[in-house]
Write a protein that binds this DNA or RNA. Structure first.
Lengths: 292, 292
DNA sequence: TATTTGTCTTTTATCCACAATAGACAGATT
DNA sequence: AATCTGTCTATTGTGGATAAAAGACAAATA
């Protein structure tokens, strides 16, 4: 198996949804545009649709024959890219599993365990190394530096520098900048979730990322924006892993966000800085509490 | 050709120098320690020494027979690791060669041009991507974002944040911290080079890196220290590429360093901050001037 | 008893092959 | 004239093979 056809399968699934809402499909380039894949893949999907008797396909005529059934979809396990699978596997091992700092990481063993080739694992580790959790000994193994207290402190130190700088840029954005509208949408979602916090508190994680990324982006600095990837991945897995008091913690964070958002909108740099600091301080505490 | 034996060749050359200064070589583990390689490689070297009639080797007795000649050494081109070769090749193309922003980068073409496999090029690009100069389109090519004015400004913005923070940590280091001694050594080198600036101005580049890295390290923050890799590589190639007024620029930077060093040693955070700012401002100007 | 050496196994670095995917171009269609 | 389709080529993603290098362990030596 040289290359998984996950792009095909994922696009196929998404195309089924397009198909469900129309009686004839658009042109190949347009479908490619909608699905974010090349025409080659679009044609492969159409070919398979035809085989599955979902459509008839003759050049420009792509007529829908029937509605897709649940078992027309590829199972979701098959639509994840290898990189995602490796990342999840690896993060589970190092965050959840008892992985002590200083432990050696073995490419071959990891590959065997995940059931994949070494090349992919290797590339993953190289990409992952920028997160500061592992380190390479050339011609030898990787070393796990571990999700330790120091790691969390170093991470949040830089985060604070970057976010304070970004918040300062944010308040200075002109009123017609699209970020303000996005901020409004985000604020509205905060209110929605808070109104039904008991059922919807799990949506916080995603919203949190969306909000902070928006703030970081206003720095217009690729290093600051890219650094948010690290924060993002750490918090993402951290939320999955540590669920104690999640409802309460999230509710508090949502309130802090709202104060922060209001401060940003005031265009008052001083107020924004204070609200930002307050929120980041409590986010840091939350993170630290989850580390033994 | 599965793996280049550059580790062997490089260690062999270094071992020749050890050999030149003694009449019998130490034990295998000790040699491995000195050369920073495994015993396997040490034994390969000793075996080759024997073949070249440089030594006789019988278990613990490794008696030197003759002094190494120039042609006992492997040529330096053969001792560079593949990663170094790819890096140099690539940097020459994108910094020196007329590479416009937005250009596509093709793994296969790059590999052919350098005369290496695609895997190595691919791994290099992944590692290199954290420097913010290239960006990947999944399932497709890389895009060169280019060594532009914006890049330089974003880089220096973060650099200033990080170095100011690090300088503040530096002045607070206890007097018995080894960094102070290293600072003294670095200062002495500055005076030496300044005293013979016409001949030695080229040594500035290396010293500059050593000094700033020392400062960054006192932050005790892996993200700040790691970020210095980016600054380091950019300035390294920048110095190689842009040599106009090098002597004068370096002399000025050396003077600024000395003021900065003195300020650090005063333990006065305010003074250190000022000296740091002053130097970074002129470093930024220098960098910007080299961009069209 | 502490090292060192001889031998053997495991892992990494690198190349290569091949399916999946992207992308180019000319002819067909509206 | 603009867009779409058919066909073909080029490139990426991934597994597998292999030499180089690391490293483990027991026997040998000082």
């Amino acid at each position: 198996m040289a290359k998984q056809n996950t792009v095909f399968k994922d696009a196929y699934n998404r195309c089924l949804k397009v198909l469900a809402e129309t009686s004839s499909l658009p042109s190949e380039p347009e479908l490619g545009q909608v699905l974010g894949v090349s025409r080659t893949t679009v044609r492969a999907i159409l070919g398979r649709f035809e085989e599955a008797k979902l459509i008839t396909w003759d050049k420009r005529k792509k007529i829908v024959l029937r509605q897709p059934q649940p078992d027309d979809y590829f199972p979701t396990e098959e639509t994840d890219s290898l990189a995602e699978i490796i990342e999840r596997s690896f993060m589970r091992r190092i965050l959840a599993g008892g992985a002590e700092p200083g432990m050696q990481i073995n490419e071959l063993e990891l590959a065997r365990e995940i059931g994949t080739g070494t090349t992919s694992v290797r590339e993953f580790l190289i990409r992952f190394s920028r997160f500061g959790l592992i380190e390479k000994r050339p011609n030898s193994h990787w070393i796990l530096k571990g999700f330790t207290r120091e790691f969390a402190l170093e991470l949040t130190e830089v985060r604070e520098m970057f976010e304070l700088r970004s918040a300062a840029s944010f308040v200075a954005l002109p009123d017609n900048h699209p970020a303000w509208q996005e901020l409004n949408r985000i604020e509205a979602l905060h209110h929605e979730i808070l109104a039904d916090i008991d059922n919807r508190y799990k949506e916080f994680s995603e919203l949190d990322e969306r909000f902070h990324l928006l703030v970081h982006k206003s720095s217009s600095n690729r290093f600051i924006v890219d650094f948010y990837d690290i924060i993002s991945i750490v918090f993402h897995y951290h939320y999955q892993w540590n669920k104690t008091n999640a409802r309460q913690r999230n509710a508090r964070a949502l309130e802090e966000h709202l104060a922060y958002i209001e401060a940003l909108r005031s265009h008052d740099a001083k107020r924004a800085e204070e609200a930002c600091r307050r929120h980041l301080r409590s986010a840091r505490e939350t993170l630290l509490q989850s580390i033994p």
